[in-house]
Amino acid sequence: VSSEIYQWVRDELKRAGISQAVFARVAFNRTQGLLSEILRKEEDPKTASQSLLVNLRAMQNFLQLPEAERDRIYQ
């Protein structure tokens, strides 16, 4: 997982004009609270716990989908 993931998520929230709650639900089936905590802490993926890595990997995989497909999912 790239250490850029945190910025990618922030950029996607702005680009798509969606809330953290929507992104958390569709990208990795978690709550806004968890996403907020992940973004606030910005732990280095190289030293992250296994559970954090699973979530970061799910977010990264979601962000690799084509933009149009992500936008459809947000609706």
Rank of each mutant, 00 (worst) to 15 (best):
G33I: 06
V54W: 08
A16Y: 02
R57H: 10
S3R: 14
Y74R: 03
L63H: 04
R30Y: 05
E4S: 10
F62D: 03
I18G: 01
E67Y: 09
S49W: 04
I5R: 00
L53V: 10
E67S: 10
V9F: 03
L63K: 04
S3L: 07
M59I: 14
K41D: 07
A27D: 01
R40C: 10
E43R: 07
V9T: 08
I5P: 01
T47R: 12
Q32L: 04
L56N: 04
P45T: 06
E4A: 12
E42K: 09
L34E: 14
N55C: 13
A16W: 00
S2Q: 10
A16D: 03
S51R: 09
R10Y: 12
E67M: 10
E42S: 12
L35K: 02
L56V: 01
D44M: 06
L13S: 02
E67D: 08
W8I: 14
L65A: 05
P45C: 04
K46P: 12
Q7N: 15
V26P: 02
A27C: 07
L52E: 09
A27K: 03
F62P: 02
L63A: 05
S19H: 05
Q32F: 07
T47W: 08
I5Q: 03
Q75A: 14
I5M: 03
L39Y: 00
L65D: 01
D11Q: 12
F28H: 04
L39M: 13
R25G: 08
Q20P: 13
S51T: 14
S51G: 12
T31D: 12
L63T: 03
A24C: 07
M59D: 06
D11A: 15
R10T: 09
V26Q: 03
V54P: 08
N29A: 05
Q20M: 08
E69N: 09
R10M: 05
N29V: 04
L65Q: 14
Q50M: 13
N29G: 08
G33N: 09
A24G: 05
E4V: 07
L56H: 06
A27M: 06
F62Y: 05
A27H: 04
S2I: 07
L39R: 02
L65W: 06
V26R: 03
E37Y: 06
E12H: 06
V1Q: 04
V54F: 11
A16F: 06
L34F: 13
G33V: 08
K41S: 08
I73G: 10
E12P: 00
L65N: 04
L63R: 06
P66Q: 06
R15D: 00
M59T: 04
N61E: 13
Q7H: 15
K14W: 05
E42L: 05
D71S: 05
Y74E: 05
S3E: 14
Q75M: 13
N61H: 09
A24T: 06
E37A: 10
V22Y: 08
Q32N: 13
P45S: 02
A27W: 04
R57S: 10
R72I: 09
V26W: 02
R30E: 15
E42C: 09
F23V: 01
N29R: 10
Q32W: 09
I5D: 03
E12A: 01
F28T: 06
S49T: 13
R10C: 07
